[in-house]
């Protein structure tokens, strides 16, 4: 069975380690916060200017001056801090943020990522994604393996305008966990009940398959 988006988030949450500062993108990445183990200390950074982002506010306690990068109302945890956009990206480009999790429209086997524009059709802008992917040491992409038309999003080369080059390290899709190794996708884990053949059929880029591929533990 292919994973739901909640399960993708749940699997990615295992990559979040004690003491990490983490930036979560919009969409599936936002859900990751719900599944991080509560016995470890993790601080979430949102690029609009908060470190120490807390859960959504209780009904009636929302504050228009307190939002995340997805423009959702949030809360600030005790010990949180606010800062301006330049300082926020100093944290990001200066590699003070340990882990970046973001969505993508396409990922290429050399680690290129495209997630901001479909020429002539959809132009929303890159937001902070280009700054994040150009600087972060540790980037995980959360996305579905194929697009709505059933075409692979894991490609030899990206067809869409790029967000960044040679930057993605790991990808968690609804079918599997992959790592970029030597310009190829290395298959690490399968979603429960999904076969290697199914993953191969849904992947346009080159796959490295070594030995038995374990099912992910979620």
């Amino acid at each position: 069975m292919a994973l739901t988006k909640e399960q993708i988030a749940q699997r990615i949450a295992k990559e979040v380690k004690d003491g990490y500062y983490v930036n979560l993108g919009i969409g599936i990445p936002t859900l990751v916060a719900n599944y991080v183990r509560d016995d470890i200390e993790v601080d979430f950074q949102s690029e609009n200017g908060i470190l120490g982002m807390g859960p959504f506010p209780f009904e009636g306690e929302e504050d228009a001056d307190l939002i995340n990068a997805g423009k959702q109302t949030i809360t600030a945890l005790p010990g949180a801090s606010f800062f301006d956009s330049a300082m926020s990206f100093a944290m990001i480009r200066g590699q003070h943020v340990d882990l970046t999790i973001l969505g993508a429209m396409e990922v290429a086997q050399n680690g290129d990522i495209a997630n901001w524009k479909i020429p002539g059709k959809m132009v929303k802008g890159m937001g902070g994604a280009m700054d994040l992917v150009s600087s972060a040491e540790n980037i995980i992409v959360a996305m579905r393996h194929t697009n709505r038309a059933g075409e692979s999003k894991l490609l030899k080369e990206c067809a869409l305008p790029l967000t960044g080059v040679n930057c993605v390290k790991k990808i968690v899709t609804d079918l599997c966990v992959l790592e970029i190794v030597d310009g190829k996708f290395k298959l690490l884990e399968r979603a429960p009940g999904v076969s290697v053949e199914e993953i191969q059929a849904a992947t346009e880029g080159d796959l490295i398959i070594e030995g038995d591929i374990p099912e992910m533990d979620i």
Binding site: S85, A86, F89, I92, V123, K124, A129, D131
Partner: peptide
């Protein structure tokens, strides 16, 4: 989006950190 795609308005998209 409509004004941009129909080119009625010029748009320069800039990475957020670069903008700041």
């Amino acid at each position: 989006e409509r004004q941009m795609l129909s080119e009625e308005m010029e748009v320069e998209l800039v990475p957020q950190g670069t903008l700041a």
